[in-house]
Design a protein around this nucleic acid. Structure first.
Length: 781
DNA sequence: TCTGCGTCTTTTTTT
DNA sequence: AAGACGCAGA
């Protein structure tokens, strides 16, 4: 115990050795937050207050989780296996895998990332004839995610606005599709896990008994659902006292409201868990005085803070330096030449960071650094698991794992090209939606030219399904790349060599995964325990932990990243770039007081990343989406005390009278107006497509039946139909279908469970119905 | 069915 | 500026 607390300051020690009940730690930037968290766990274990299996620790990134474990193992010798440490998403995934049955999911459920999710939404909308011009899939996606983050299913959302009503209907259809495909999007992981716990008393009590100590990092970034999940797990209102929740957060660093984070959770936590007084960590061990003064001054412009003032006993240090260049190219040149000077003086590149508000800004710095031969690393660019070739290979593996994963199916059914074109796929999708089965299963019912093509694809997937149980994961990855034809495809592509390398890298990733994350059986106490197969683990790993490791690869390099990505990191020398009004703060935030305050917190985060030296840079003119704009300096610059700041260029806030005429300064926003009004014209006025129906609850126009084209096929079908003499369904019989109404059976094919009815409905369309499914909905007239 | 070309949109941030 | 998407022609 001595060793754990001995080098802590008073407040830190107070937090670490607090009584084993719930507590809130308000930890300012650079105040030793991670240290306190890990020390707390070490303390609990060492004092025998807790057994490792009783500890649940939630972080926001996988990186943070890993770091926590690593530091912990440095402090005390323990086997971290028994603890649950991870992100909300990772832990929920784990919970759902263990209890998939109770959660209503197949053990092999797929995890959809953002682009998969968008794809499903587009598919759902198309299948139901919803105009994607009028209802933008992106907005639908946001709507759905927002609902889920508030814990609401489609049936629980109400709105009087017609647009919302439409969204709600799409949400409902989307829910149904996900359920059928056995897939979860990110928010679904949380919502499902929440529902699992709240509905299943046994499971809930089990985990409530188990996790007596819950530690939460970055508590200010939790959303409504996550907080509810925590309350459930802690047994608030059920258990007296509830489990000890040790929440660490900083309201001033809340920068994820845009994705549903709710700072209000901190206040609620204090009330609901009856926290007396939060423990404040205000001594900053990171930054020099000037930097800290600037950060404090800036953030004091925000209202509704919990209140906290960072101090340091380090000296004032260098003044912050500001520089305004003529344009963005010059800005990049200024930043990089300054970096060059530091490197020449012996500073190592990895201690230098370039921060920007949005990803698009990185390009100029990249080219300039390349030109100078300075090594650099871009965080959060295209992530390894987001690369097309990797996603393709993963899709094959997902299908091997879970053939009803339609997203994966659609991604690779014709990659490499197998002559399965849009039309065949459309037919297949129609058949699948009409009958409510997966695309994979539907393949066998397709006749005609496409049948052989589908059979070839099915053969590949079937082979993979067998292979996955017969070889170790890395070998299976390799086999997949081979058998799918992806390797061959990229080998034939003259530009494919990098993709081949990446696919090779995927095999090593699988190897690394096995080594590091070795998935083991849980729970010695006999509750529902299930082994996650290595493949299932790897597949979800690819969705959930996409590429955070790659950042560590390029060791000694200048670090480039968005301000968001920089949270939790620190560097000797930091450049905050693009400090222009409408850029940072971003123009989409400027008319919303709350959003503007979040921008300010973002700036606060950026400033507090710096240990020794801080540069603030901006440009008068900047290329944006192909156009050039002039701009005002960021209003945040005026909130930084003059005595901490030194302008290397002319100070744009002095001598305003001699500044350029208003026109050139204001033209950024002027042009913007033009831009948005012309945008409006095109989307409101000149819509070329008639935006007629919103919901075609009946038959989608494009659904024209599958087999009507070829006469010869009809012939063979007629022969088949004769074999079905024991079935009540025969050509020529009139029927009525619950959903599609009256119709006549044109033909049948197949027999028994596989029997398909080809029905012409009065409403116009010809549909192919699987007899065993449609049977319940059909009456013979 | 596939390919290439032209048009349109986009990004603020991410588990 | 770059990527997604749709369309037309091979």
């Amino acid at each position: 115990m001595q060793s754990i607390t001995e080098s802590l300051n008073k407040q830190q020690a107070q937090a670490v050795t607090a009584e084993p009940k719930s507590a809130l730690i308000l930890a300012g930037a650079g105040s030793g937050k991670t240290r306190v968290l890990t020390s707390r766990i070490a303390y609990l274990l060492q004092q025998n207050m807790a057994h490792p299996s009783e500890i649940l620790a939630v972080t926001f990134t996988n990186k943070a989780a890993k770091e926590m474990l690593a530091r912990l193992q440095n402090m005390i010798p323990i086997n971290p296996r028994a603890m649950w440490v991870g992100t909300f998403h990772g832990l929920c995934n784990r919970l759902l895998r263990l209890h998939h049955q109770e959660a209503g999911l197949p053990s092999t459920f797929a995890i959809l990332d953002m682009s998969d999710q968008l794809g499903v939404i587009k598919r759902v909308m198309k299948a139901n004839g919803i105009d994607t011009e009028e209802f933008k899939p992106r907005e639908v996606q946001n709507f759905i995610n927002r609902c889920k983050e508030e814990g609401k299913r489609a049936s629980e959302v109400y709105s009087k606005f017609s647009k919302d009503k439409a969204y709600i209907q799409i949400y409902a259809m989307y829910e149904a599709v996900l359920q059928r495909e056995g897939a979860c999007d990110f928010a679904e992981l949380l919502l499902r896990a929440y529902e699992l716990l709240s509905r299943n008393e046994m499971i809930r009590h089990h985990y409530q008994e188990r996790f007596r100590f819950i530690l939460v990092d970055e508590f200010q970034d939790t959303n409504v659902l996550q907080y509810e999940w925590l309350k459930l797990l802690a047994g608030l209102g059920e258990k007296n006292p509830p489990n000890a929740v040790f929440a660490v957060g900083d309201d001033d660093q809340s920068i994820y409201a845009f994705r549903g984070a709710n700072v209000g959770n901190m206040m609620s936590f204090v009330q609901e868990f009856r926290i007396g007084e939060p423990i404040r960590l205000e001594q900053n061990y990171r930054s020099q005085g000037n930097i800290l003064d600037a950060a404090n001054a800036l953030i004091s412009n925000n209202s509704e803070r919990m209140g906290k003032n960072l101090w340091t006993d380090a000296g004032k240090g260098e003044k912050i330096r500001a520089n305004r260049s003529d344009n963005d190219f010059d800005e990049a040149r200024f930043v990089c030449s300054t970096i060059q000077e530091y490197i020449d003086k012996g500073v190592s590149p990895e201690d230098i960071a370039i921060l920007y508000r949005s990803n698009a800004q990185s390009r100029l710095f990249e080219t300039e650094l390349t030109r100078r031969g300075i090594p650099f690393m871009v965080y959060g660019g295209l992530r390894f698991f987001d690369r097309a070739e990797i996603k393709n290979a993963m899709a094959y593996m997902r299908l091997a794992e879970n053939p009803s994963d339609d997203s994966a199916f659609l991604r690779v059914v014709n990659v490499p090209a197998r002559g399965i074109g849009a039309k065949s796929i459309e037919n297949l999708v129609d058949f699948a939606t009409t009958n409510g089965i997966s695309l994979f299963e539907s393949m066998q019912y397709i006749r005609g030219a496409a049948a052989n093509k589908f059979a070839a694809f099915k053969e590949i997937i079937d082979t993979l399904r067998v292979a996955k149980d017969e070889m170790p994961l890395p070998a299976f990855v390799d086999f997949t790349v081979e058998k799918s034809g992806l390797r061959n495809m990229y080998e034939l592509d003259p530009n494919g060599s990098e993709r081949i390398e990446n696919l090779q890298e995927l095999t090593s990733a699988a190897q690394g995964f096995i080594k590091e994350e070795a998935i083991d059986t849980e729970n010695s106490d006999g509750t529902a325990v299930e082994n996650l197969s290595a493949l299932a683990g790897f597949v979800s790993h690819a969705s959930l932990e996409a590429g955070e490791n790659q950042a560590q690869v390029g060791q000694d390099a200048v670090q480039l990243m968005t301000v968001h990505a920089s949270k939790g990191l620190e560097f000797d020398i930091v450049f905050i770039t693009g400090l222009e009004e409408d850029m940072f703060p971003h123009f989409r935030s400027k008319n919303d007081k709350k959003a503007l305050q979040e921008e300010r917190r973002l700036m606060y985060v950026a400033i507090t990343r710096a240990r020794k030296e801080l540069y603030l840079t901006l440009a008068e003119e900047r290329m944006l989406q192909g156009r050039s704009f002039s701009s005002y300096p960021s209003s945040f610059l005026t909130e930084i005390p003059g005595e901490t700041l030194k302008w290397l260029s002319r100070n744009p806030f002095e001598s305003r009278y001699e500044a350029e005429d208003e026109d050139s300064w204001g033209s950024r926003s002027g042009s913007n107006k033009n831009y948005s009004s012309s945008y409006r014209n095109s989307s409101c006025g000149g819509s070329t497509k008639p935006s007629g129906h919103r919901f075609a609850s009946n038959v989608p126009e494009w659904a024209k039946g599958i087999i009507e084209t070829k006469k010869e096929k009809l012939q063979t079908q007629k022969i088949r139909a004769k074999q079905n003499s024991d079935s009540p369904y025969k050509a020529g019989i009139n029927i009525n279908h619950e959903k599609f109404g009256p119709g006549v059976i044109l033909d049948t094919q197949g027999a028994g469970d596989d029997m398909v009815l080809i029905v012409k409905f009065k409403t116009g369309g010809i549909k192919n119905l699987l007899a065993r499914i449609a049977g319940k909905k059909i009456t013979i007239l």
